[in-house]
Design a protein around this nucleic acid. Structure first.
Lengths: 114, 114
DNA sequence: TTGATATTTCTAGAATTATGGAATCGAAAG
DNA sequence: CTTTCGATTCCATAATTCTAGAAATATCAA
């Protein structure tokens, strides 16, 4: 991972509403949540939520897909894990750190995942 | 961890020079590096480096100690690990993710660590 | 005390980012 | 085809953050 994508990802997460949205999506799992639900739960106007979701998407931290009239956002676990790996890269001058931070939705309880 | 500290930490890392400095410190281990060395390696004037190091310190990501005329900065591994744990909290609605990202300098090869 | 070194604080201007209302777009339903 | 709903884009304003030179501070050596 290059520095630039990592900076974009970190910058995307370094904002109250975006961090809240991302965490809701991380907790929601691969099914994700529609933009409107996120705006309502976080308490920001739709235009602001859209602005922030665009930043997260641009940083590659979330994916988006249309489902009827809604646009569903979901956390990109690979991107998140990649970011954490980047931060701990070559940690402590080569100490065998448990640098394997990993959140793997594939381990989720059976529930026809997209 | 509350959202606010996490936002401060993420914001601190979301900047080219600060991310570079933090990664150098993560790789340097508990011994850390003096401000001047960081400024030189990264290629920014001392005043800018100082500004950025203050941000990292304020976010709790690095510690600082004076050693003669130099001020040595070192990564705070606990803070980093805490941040990563926060990001993956309740990942995937309770799936047993390997949320144990951990960089532990105590595992370092014998080398009288402070 | 004087001088050199390492770093920080102060400062203002430049650049970037956030906000939210209004207008617009796309999909579905009547 | 018109309406409604969910979401985005546009826009001007407000707020924050970055930059780097100059000045100040702290440490050590002579």
């Amino acid at each position: 991972m290059d520095p630039q994508p990592a900076i974009r990802a970190l910058g995307a997460l370094a904002q109250e509403h975006r961090l809240a949205a991302f965490r809701l999506l991380v907790q929601a799992g691969p099914d994700g949540l529609p933009a409107g639900t996120l705006a309502e739960r976080i308490g920001v106007p739709p235009s602001s939520m859209s602005f922030h979701l665009a930043q997260l998407a641009n940083a590659g931290l979330v994916s988006q897909r249309r489902q009827s009239r809604s646009i569903i956002y979901a956390a990109d676990y690979a991107a998140m894990n990649g970011l954490m790996a980047y931060l701990t890269e070559n940690c402590c001058a080569g100490v065998p750190c448990t640098t394997g931070a990993a959140c793997n939705p594939a381990l989720a309880p059976a529930k026809d995942v997209a």
